[in-house]
C-alpha cells in the first residue's frame, strides 16, 4: 500500500526557493500569484499498512525536521476510510 508524505517549510521559515519561483511565475504573466512555497512530496510503498504511530515517528525523526518543517501523511487507508 502507498503512503504519501508532504513536507513543507514552516510559515515562519524564509523560503527563498518559493520567492524565486513566485517571481518566475510573475514573469510569465500570471500577475495574481501572491505566495509560493516549495516543499517535498514522498511516496512510500509498504507491504502492509504501517502503524500510525510508527509512521508519525518516521516522519518526525527522518523525513522532516520539526525545527523548520511540517508534514502531512496521506495513506490509502485514510482515503477509503473517509469515503
Amino acid at each position: 500500500m502507498k503512503v504519501h508524505v508532504i513536507v513543507m517549510p514552516k510559515r515562519t521559515v524564509l523560503d527563498p526557493q518559493g520567492m524565486v519561483v513566485k517571481n518566475a511565475i510573475k514573469e510569465l504573466g500570471f500577475a495574481g500569484v501572491q505566495h509560493v512555497r516549495v516543499g517535498k512530496f514522498l511516496e512510500l510503498e509498504f507491504a502492509h499498512q504501517p502503524e500510525k504511530f510508527r509512521l508519525e515517528t518516521l516522519c518526525r525523526d527522518l523525513l522532516s525536521n520539526p525545527v523548520i518543517e511540517d508534514f502531512v501523511i496521506q495513506s490509502e487507508a485514510d482515503a477509503s476510510g473517509s469515503e
Binding site: 521559515v13 524564509l14 527563498p16 526557493q17 524565486v20 525536521n65 525545527v67 523548520i68
Partner: peptide, 17 residues
C-alpha cells in the same frame, strides 16, 4: 549536530540560493 539534536536550530538554504 543540529539534525542529531545535539545543537539547537537548523541550517537552511542560503538566502541568495
Amino acid at each position: 549536530l543540529c539534525e542529531a539534536g545535539l545543537l539547537p536550530g537548523a541550517l537552511l538554504r542560503n538566502r541568495t540560493l
